[in-house]
Amino acid sequence: MNFTLFDLKIIEYSFFITAILVIMIGLYGALVKKSLIKVVIGLSVFDSGINLLLISVGYITSGTAPIFSPALVKDMPLTLENIKKLSAGMVDPVPQALVLTAIVIGFGVTAVALSLVIRLYRHHQTLNIDEIKNLKW
């Protein structure tokens, strides 16, 4: 795929702007909403935005996935020059490993937060954070 400069600019701005907008929407939901489940939903949306941002920072135009598949290294001796030539066209694997960790940890955080929400509801019979005043339970 050969991108012209114009297309490149459009894609660049659209990915970053989308990630920032999703982060803003998630933070707005987490800060403004009264319902505790809505707060956790806002944090989850925030998480998605950050993941998109990190992956799109590591992208390289018309790059391939960082996998040396059999089709890629088929009739090519594995010398240092060949590997360097192949790896010049690969996207950055470091943010991908980071986001892989972040998604799994985010799920654990969401599960613990939701179990705390269930426990609070069982005690107070409400989820409004204005009515949950006493911190001791």
Partner: peptide
């Protein structure tokens, strides 16, 4: 960058195809 080190070392030394797996 550190990317180049990972991308060269993984197939040459570790003989692993998937670089993300090797990093993780």
């Amino acid at each position: 960058g550190v990317k180049d080190f990972y991308l060269v070392t993984t197939p040459m030394k570790l003989q692993v195809a998937n670089v993300v797996t090797a990093i993780v």
